[in-house]
Simulated scan of single mutants.
Amino acid sequence: MEQYVVRTLSTELQTGTLNIESLDLSHNRIDDRGTKSLSLGLQEMSNLEQLDLSYNNITDRGAGYLGQAKMWMQNVTYLDLSHNEIGNKGAKSLNEGMGTISKLEHFNLGHNKIGDDGLVSLSEGFRRMLPCVLTYLDLSHNSINESGKESLMIAMHSMNHLDLSHNQISNFGVERFNIEGVNWEELRHLDLSNNNIDDLGAASLTYGIEKMVKLQHLNLSNNSIADYGAECLSVGMERIGELTHVNLSHNQIGPTGAGHLGEGIKRMYKCKLTDLDLSNNEISDTGAVVFSESFTAGWYCLSRLNLSNNGIGDSEQKLSKAVSRMNELTKLDLSHNNIVTRELKVSVKS
């Protein structure tokens, strides 16, 4: 979208004659100048509930213009600023306008350039949103590391979807999930994939997971979690009765860790787990045997299991026998292993 078109739209909006509740300007070429023009029109849009400016060229300066146009924020429930170039200064500018927001439920700032300082600013804004009804927050693909997370955790009360994937969060940052007084009871989706979390981080996270009693989706793929981390996570997982999807792919989990995970899942109260991804680990034949020995009644609900690329070969007979007891299984991925097909006998429910 050319900038003069944005100016024309802004002029029309400034007349106050339009009663627009949802405005989608995503996938355009709106830059800071266009955002400045648009912000003038937004000031007259007190009825606006949804604004999508994703996939544009908005930087810190453009975010500043949006933060200054506070009138439009009053009734906004959905705000998408993902896939832009907003950094710490832009996050601070948005924070300055958040005092007028009280209805925001869905906020997407993924794929920007926000770091720890920006996260602190946003968290301050969230805490001024009274009452805070934010349920969906996407901060994936940014540069968040450690220091800002504590402020964010304290600001979370009604959150049910939190995406912090593809950042630089390490063990110290994960510890922030254990802050006393933080209410995680509503969280249903947690994505910490593609960070720098290893065994110690997984152990720290376990204490936080135990408080997430309604958690359904847990994604810790593409980290550096090995056997000890898997053992700790299994303890936390067995206490979550609502867990349905777990992704621990692309880690360093070996035979011992696989065994602990299997036992932990078996002990899950009223197990609802339907999807388990352990692909691209180091489970091997030894781990596959130990893992398969836990396939008892506790696994009756699992419908998708991914064990691809784990160096599994000679254990396929025991594995196939164990899988045959999983009555709800509809998808089994054992690709990129060393399995001899003449020995493998697997019955998967159609």
Results as ranks from 00 to 15, higher is better:
132 C>D: 08
251 N>A: 07
100 T>F: 12
200 L>Y: 11
75 N>D: 06
340 V>L: 13
127 R>T: 09
123 S>H: 07
172 F>L: 15
151 S>D: 11
313 G>H: 01
1 M>T: 08
152 L>H: 01
177 F>N: 00
205 L>Q: 06
181 G>A: 14
27 H>Y: 13
10 S>R: 07
272 K>T: 00
322 A>T: 00
44 E>D: 07
56 N>G: 06
135 T>W: 05
129 M>H: 03
168 Q>P: 11
166 H>M: 03
207 Y>M: 08
220 L>Q: 01
32 D>G: 11
254 G>L: 08
164 L>M: 09
104 L>C: 05
287 G>C: 14
283 I>E: 02
40 L>K: 10
285 D>W: 05
175 E>V: 05
198 D>N: 13
332 L>Y: 10
293 E>V: 00
117 D>E: 15
248 L>Q: 02
234 S>Y: 00
335 S>R: 06
149 K>G: 08
45 M>C: 09
165 S>I: 10
154 I>K: 14
258 A>H: 03
209 I>A: 00
195 N>C: 08
325 R>S: 10
267 R>I: 06
140 S>Q: 09
221 S>N: 06
81 L>T: 01
258 A>I: 04
178 N>D: 04
301 C>S: 13
67 G>E: 04
3 Q>S: 13
91 A>F: 06
12 E>K: 15
172 F>C: 06
270 K>C: 02
317 Q>W: 05
13 L>E: 03
115 G>P: 12
280 N>C: 13
348 V>I: 09
115 G>R: 06
349 K>I: 05
51 L>D: 04
121 S>G: 01
254 G>K: 12
23 L>R: 03
349 K>A: 07
344 L>K: 12
91 A>K: 10
141 H>D: 09
150 E>N: 07
324 S>E: 12
2 E>L: 09
55 Y>L: 07
81 L>E: 01
27 H>P: 00
70 K>P: 01
189 H>Q: 03
327 N>C: 14
244 T>Q: 13
57 N>F: 10
202 A>T: 09
200 L>I: 15
230 A>W: 08
105 E>D: 02
66 L>V: 14
337 N>F: 10
